[in-house]
Write a protein that binds this DNA or RNA. Structure first.
Length: 420
RNA sequence: GUGACCAUAGCUCAGUUGGUUAGAGCAUCUGGUUGUGGCCCAGAAGGUCAUGGGUUCAAAUCCCAUUGGUCACCCCA
């Protein structure tokens, strides 16, 4: 039997309603903040991601679905969206048509990691990107939208964590200070963290090893070594968040893995999912557009994992979607009438009702069971004596009440059913 | 990439110290007098016990390999 590729999965009809519910909330909130949807191709030139995310990051160095196409170009299924949005901005000179661009997206992403709870190889993200302003109000706006979406879904066990990475110059200075501090403890670091010492020293803060955590407790923090401008920026973000009633924690250890971040970074984590607890994450990237060959355009954005969010929603039972109903199920009383019943059904559908009927020549009892299973609001019995009288019998499945209706009057009942 | 655990019907799971024809609940299908659902009742269908090898008189059960899955590390949404 051929099965879905490892780390991918089907979203079956029974699961679609909750996905649509989520998508509706996402669309609604983004549009209230006047963000415009953007859709980019599912794959891009590999170089785009390598240059933006960073050659040495895990995503680029070992998680990308890359292949050489028949023209000899190395292409990659998108592992994240920011690079693609920035590429589109530059390619279409969007910043010249409008100096501030606010985008949002909902799209599948691909990363070849080992699957586990809340992590897949094809997964779905929604997110937003703002290009063209360094205003800290936008940093806050991004966080507010992410928070509002999650709380609109009814999620309670979430925590907003924010931090500032400052500008590269102060960060590089700080890295030297941190390295100086860690040299004293280098022998006591875990093997993992010894590697991080050389590759990405900031990540040692993330270590789950006890020995590392002990050492890092007293380590100098980046936030204490920010330049004045970065501190001021960060302050304004905090004030805006407080004004919007967003509960947040400052997590000086919050270091994000993508190379392009500057200033604000944030994450919203859930306490009701497994160890992959980050529901969304993002930050400011003031240097990325220039790095990709565009103008000196600051940006900020975030991405949220939809599978993780739905997992959290399920665990918290944070919302429920009502089952999908159909308006009318047509029960055909004599099998040879199926053609006429079918025509009748098509007409009702063209009038705007959701209608179904039996295609398996089943008994009336079986058809009724089917109508019930399909959550039909009404059943129309088609055939018998009533057909000779140019009537059908209509049954309200909730109350059980049945009425006879003349063919000529069917239009009227359509109107009343639509209103329900 | 590393580690741990798991694999019996469509789904969730029983299955004794290895012992005859592998079970249940749910779901599916058909009925329970002419043309009426849910609840209830009766019945039916559905399994190469993941795959391949080995041990044994005998394997769903023990051993090995393979494949798949789950969770965790790493990293991230």
């Amino acid at each position: 039997m051929i099965k879905a590729i490892t780390g991918t999965r089907d979203i079956l009809p029974q699961d679609i309603p909750k996905w649509k519910y989520l998508e509706n909330i996402v669309n609604g909130i983004f549009s209230k903040f006047n963000y415009k949807e953007i859709r980019t191709p599912i794959f891009e030139e590999t170089a785009l991601f390598a240059r933006s995310i960073g050659e040495t990051t895990d995503i680029v160095s070992k998680e990308m679905y890359s292949f050489i196409d028949r023209g000899g170009t190395s292409v990659t299924l998108k592992p994240e969206m920011t690079a693609a949005v920035v590429r589109a901005l530059i390619e279409h000179s969007l910043e010249k048509k409008q100096s501030l661009n606010k985008f949002f997206y909902i799209s599948p992403m691909f990363r070849q990691e080992r699957p586990q709870a809340g992590r897949f190889r094809q997964f779905h993200q929604f997110g937003a990107e703002v290009l063209g302003s360094n205003d800290p109000l936008l940093d806050a706006e991004i966080i507010i939208m992410a928070y509002d979406i999650l709380s609109s879904l009814g999620l309670k066990k979430i925590v907003v964590k924010i931090n500032s990475l400052g500008v590269p110059e102060s960060r590089e200075k700080y890295k030297l200070i941190l390295a100086e501090y860690l040299k004293k403890y280098h022998d006591k670091l875990s093997a993992q963290s010894k590697k991080r010492f050389d590759s990405n020293i900031l990540r040692i803060f993330d270590s789950k090893e006890n020995q590392d955590q002990k050492i890092m407790e007293h380590a100098p923090l980046l936030i204490e070594h920010l330049d004045d401008e970065s501190l001021e920026h960060f302050e304004k973000v905090k004030v805006a968040l407080l004004g919007a009633n967003i509960p947040f924690e400052i997590d000086a250890k919050l270091v994000r893995g993508l190379d392009y971040y500057t200033h604000t970074t944030f994450e919203i984590v859930s306490r009701s999912v497994g160890s992959q607890s980050a529901l969304c994450g993002g930050g400011r990237y003031n240097l990325l557009v220039k790095e990709l060959g565009g103008g000196d355009i600051p940006g900020i954005g975030f991405a949220a994992g939809m599978e993780r969010i739905l997992l959290a929603c399920e665990n918290e039972k944070s919302f429920s979607v009502k089952e999908e109903e159909i308006d009318i199920y047509i029960v055909t009383l004599e099998k040879e009438l199926i053609q006429k019943a079918y025509q009748f059904a098509v007409n009702l559908r063209r009038s705007g009702l959701i209608v179904d009927l039996d295609y398996l020549s089943r008994s009336v009892k079986a058809q009724m069971r089917e109508a019930n299973k399909a959550s039909a609001k009404f059943v129309i019995f088609f055939g018998g004596n009533e057909l000779n009288q140019k009537e059908i019998v209509m049954k309200d499945m909730k109350t059980g009440v049945q009425v006879n209706i003349k063919f000529d009057d069917v239009d009227k009942i359509i109107f009343t059913i639509k209103g329900r």
